[in-house]
Design a protein around this nucleic acid. Structure first.
Lengths: 196, 196
DNA sequence: TTTATAAAAACGATCATACGTTCGTATTTA
DNA sequence: TAAATACGAACGTATGATCGTTTTTATAAA
């Protein structure tokens, strides 16, 4: 056989990414096989190589894509907000909303960094650092304006991020707590910890 | 060849567990091979089966062992403390201290639950639930005695656990912040969030 | 509008290597 | 003398990646 009628590179790549997210999430990157991936997409194993360079490249693509989108989104969200307190509230609401809908990406982006080649690993860590700085700067600015009182801004940054991200591992959208309530509770928790 | 001089079941099993923690942490459970494991311990692959039932059994053993020890330790730690505020402080200090020294176990205990057979999965989730209840009950008791003021005890339980556990993924024992400072900062953060 | 042609996207076979587990056997320890 | 511990060979199956080939699609000239 050969090229299938109606086949399109864009659609196939999107399907590969989607199935890739699922499989890495389910089995871990090293344990996921390209044969499984091809089967889910409806291809022969060799055909994947019309769309990806290597298996490693696919992993990097998945994580990189997530991080770049995350950064662009938070910047768009904070744009035009000057008051540190308002920026902090916006950050919390955004972070929860965004991460709750991307459990697979969050999981992969933390548990599979180990499987990235050094060069790729460095790039992702740099992007993550960049995201952390968004929160760090908000806290710093709030302290400078004497709105916040924070013992250790660096540690608080990590503590807040850990709390907000970790919640996504158990949050059940169909559960007792709706999204708005979740955001309200966490906003209050964080503010109580940083407000003067 | 055959049985090696000086070989002992207890020591070999301990070595298998230790190397197992390393390998699952480095590669993920499915991707870790029993051949790698045997090589690290200094055995032939088949010899592992004098000490473990199956690969799945090894994973369950690693996680189960961690959870059981965790539960016994927190109970020992809280024993004899009645005041909810003191219990909460003890919980925070214990949780941080214990988890910082067991990064591999924490990582595996959350990222590799997916690889447990349903029966084993249920057992581990029950143990984890049991640990979560220790904190939940402290918060509940504190609210009942009107020491704490908490909007949603369940959500706060998860938020606090997420914060305290998440911190272990980046904390560097050789870094700027020493352990006592870390505990102080987090104690203050949590207390500000729950105290009336 | 038709036709020529290059690029894109799929197939199926193939490579050497690695997988978890079982088994019969040999040696050491209790 | 029996149990514990290790070896080494073997089982069928799966691995990531490459390759030559074939068909479809897109582009642009006629």
């Amino acid at each position: 056989m050969s090229r299938t009628a109606g086949s399109s590179g864009k659609k196939t790549l999107a399907a590969i990414r989607e199935a890739g997210l699922d499989l890495v999430h389910e089995h871990g990157f090293e344990a996921m096989s390209l044969r499984q991936l091809a089967a889910r997409v409806g291809l022969q194993p060799g055909s994947l190589y019309n769309h990806i360079e290597t298996k490693q490249d696919l992993l990097f693509d998945l994580i990189h894509n997530h991080m770049v989108t995350l950064l662009a989104s938070i910047d768009a969200e904070l744009e035009g907000i000057d008051d540190p307190l308002e920026r902090l509230k916006a950050f919390i609401a955004f972070h929860l909303t965004y991460h709750i809908e991307r459990k697979r990406e969050v999981f992969i982006g933390s548990s599979e960094l180990r499987s990235l080649e050094p060069k790729n690993h460095r790039k992702i860590v740099a992007l993550r650092k960049s995201y952390e700085e968004r929160l760090y700067e908000i806290l710093e600015q709030g302290c400078a304006q004497r709105l916040f009182k924070i013992e250790d801004i660096r540690v608080s940054t990590y503590a807040i991020l850990a709390m907000l991200t970790g919640i996504c591992t158990w949050y059940d959208a169909k559960g007792r707590v709706d999204r708005k309530t979740l955001i309200d509770i966490h906003t209050r928790l964080v503010l109580q910890g940083v407000l003067k």
